[in-house]
C-alpha cells in the first residue's frame, strides 16, 4: 500500500528522515531540535495517492547537465521519483558552540539484500555546491533488509547556511533565499546502478507552532 502513498519505489522504501541539532544541556542530557522531519507512516489501501508534480516544472532547480534530474528521470524507473516540500523549523536559538551536533538520520527498507549508495547534492540556483556520498549495507531484521544512515554529520556549508538564514530578520527574507536552495538525494543500487529512490527537496520556513512540516509529491511527466 505504500507505493504511490509514501516515499517508496518497488525496490526501496524510506521509513524516516530527519535533520537535527543536538544541544547539550548538561553532561547527561541534551535538547534535540528537528529542522526537518519525515516520520514513519503506515498508509493503507484506503488512503489517497500522493499528488503529482510534473518534473519539468522543477528541472532548473536541480543540476541539468550529465547526471542531472532530467537524465535521471528519463532513465527511470519513474515510480522512484518524489518531490518533498519542507517547511523547516528554525524556531530555535543558535549559538556558535563546538559541542553542538548537526546531523542527518534516515532509514530505508527493502525486500532485497543489496548495497545502496546515497548521493545528496546541495544546490544553489540549481547548481551543485556540495555533495555527500554514503554507502550502506543491509541488515536483515524482521523479515526485511534495513538500511540506516545514523547521525551523519551535516557539512560545514549547511551549518553556515542555517546560521546565515537564522540571522535574517524576517521570514519572507528566509523564504526568498530558500527559493533558490534545493537538495537532490539519489539512492542507487551500488552494484547495478539502478535508481532506487530520487528525492528532490525544496524548502520554506515553518510558521507553525508544531514544528517542521512537509508535503510529499510523486514526480511525473505527463
Amino acid at each position: 500500500p505504500w507505493q504511490g502513498r509514501s516515499i517508496a519505489s518497488s525496490k526501496l522504501r524510506m521509513l524516516e528522515f530527519s535533520a537535527f541539532l543536538e544541544q547539550p544541556q548538561d553532561p547527561e542530557t541534551f535538547n534535540k531540535h528537528l529542522f526537518v522531519h519525515i516520520g514513519q507512516s503506515n498508509p493503507s489501501y484506503s488512503d489517497p495517492y500522493l499528488e503529482s508534480v510534473d518534473v519539468r516544472q522543477i528541472y532548473d532547480k536541480f543540476p541539468e547537465k550529465k547526471g542531472g534530474l532530467k537524465e535521471l528521470f528519463d532513465k527511470g524507473p519513474h515510480n522512484a521519483f518524489f518531490l518533498v516540500k519542507f517547511w523547516a523549523d528554525l524556531s530555535l536559538n543558535l549559538q556558535d558552540d563546538s559541542s553542538f551536533f548537526y546531523g542527518v538520520s534516515s532509514q530505508y527498507e527493502s525486500s532485497e539484500n543489496m548495497v545502496i549508495t546515497s548521493s545528496t547534492k546541495v544546490c544553489s540556483f540549481g547548481k551543485q555546491v556540495v555533495e555527500k556520498v554514503e554507502t550502506e549495507y543491509a541488515r536483515f531484521e524482521n523479515g526485511r533488509y534495513m538500511f540506516r544512515i545514523h547521525r551523519s554529520p551535516l557539512c560545514e556549508y549547511m551549518i553556515n547556511f542555517i546560521h546565515k538564514l537564522k540571522h535574517l530578520p524576517e521570514k519572507y527574507m528566509m523564504n526568498s533565499v530558500l527559493e533558490n536552495f534545493t537538495i537532490l538525494q539519489v539512492v542507487t543500487n551500488r552494484d547495478t546502478l539502478e535508481t532506487l529512490l530520487c528525492i528532490a527537496y525544496v524548502f520554506e520556513v515553518s510558521t507553525s507552532e508544531h514544528g517542521a512540516q512537509h508535503h510529499i509529491y510523486r514526480l511525473v511527466k505527463d
Binding site: S52, V53, I58, Y59, D60, E179, E204, H210, Q213, H215
Partner: peptide, 24 residues
C-alpha cells in the same frame, strides 16, 4: 530551460504546495 528564472509561485504546482500542514 524554458522555466529558468520563473518564480516558483508562477509554476504549475498543486495548491497544497503553498499550504503548510497544521498538524501536531
Amino acid at each position: 530551460s524554458a522555466v529558468e528564472q520563473v518564480p516558483m509561485r508562477k509554476r504549475l504546482l498543486p495548491a497544497s504546495f503553498w499550504e503548510e500542514p497544521k498538524l501536531t
